[in-house]
Simulated scan of single mutants.
Amino acid sequence: MSDEQPIVYIVDDDPTICKALSIVIGSQGYGVETFGRAETFLDQYDPDVLGCLLLDLRLPGMSGLQLLDDERNISHHLPTIILTGHSDITHAVSAMKSGAMDFIQKPYDREQLMGCIRNAVVMAGRRQRKRKSTQSVRRRLETLTPRERELLDELLAGKSNKQIAGQWYVSLRTIENHRAHLMSKMNAKNVADLVRAVSVTLASSDT
């Protein structure tokens, strides 16, 4: 887990609930930020901050479900826990289908709430590390020359140095030199590391 203090964002239009949740969650060492409207939260939310979201479904203006379905795909970056009343169970299930990780019925149980938050923050940490790793690989990809990028494509296709040398009409030593530069730039120990890192990065670009 990062040394960064996780932030629990609360989006609920009931000030009493926000205050009560802030006291409980803050006492456990988490930072807390509260919002009465989804639009205000979206305006101020920083996707690079480690944390999770407690979201009420019934909000003025943009609803909780609309927030989850927003084109910015909040739940993809920020693990989301739905706060719901008994009459909103059907909507809570819809929220889970839209990306929420869990839901808690009001009035909430403190232990259940904190357990959900701990799980959400662990998930957020994993997502953050993966996102930073992907960003790092993308930056390294941008440093490759056109020839190195061609070589990378050939390696991703499973071709050997000898096959690439024959296809490019160059010596095996030339390919080995290009490959050494490529591996150094990509900070990869071997082809398996290279393929794994680049494949995950390219796949994340398509989601």
Rank of each mutant, 00 (worst) to 15 (best):
N177E: 13
Q112R: 14
S98M: 14
N177P: 01
V137S: 05
A95I: 01
M183T: 04
V137P: 04
Q128L: 15
S184C: 09
P146E: 06
R140F: 00
L144I: 02
S98H: 12
A165L: 03
M186S: 03
I175D: 03
E111P: 06
D153I: 02
A95F: 07
V121Y: 08
P146G: 04
R127C: 03
L151V: 06
A100W: 01
S184G: 09
T134P: 03
L144D: 07
E150T: 12
I104M: 06
K132E: 15
D102G: 11
S160N: 02
T134H: 07
V137Y: 03
L141R: 05
Q135P: 00
L156Y: 01
L151I: 05
V137G: 02
I175V: 15
G166Y: 00
E111H: 14
Q105C: 13
E154C: 11
V170N: 08
H181T: 13
A100S: 10
L151W: 03
R139F: 05
L113K: 11
A165M: 03
C116N: 14
N119K: 11
T134W: 05
L155G: 01
M96L: 15
Q163G: 08
V137F: 05
N177H: 13
M123C: 10
M101S: 14
R179L: 03
A95P: 04
A124W: 10
G99I: 09
R179T: 07
T174V: 14
G115K: 07
N187T: 10
M101E: 14
Q167C: 06
N161M: 03
H178A: 13
Q112D: 13
L152S: 02
A124E: 14
N161S: 12
A100L: 06
L113M: 12
K159D: 00
Y169L: 12
N161T: 12
A124N: 12
Q128M: 15
I117A: 03
L113C: 09
P146N: 08
D153G: 07
L113Q: 12
K130C: 06
R127L: 15
Y108Q: 04
V170H: 13
H181G: 09
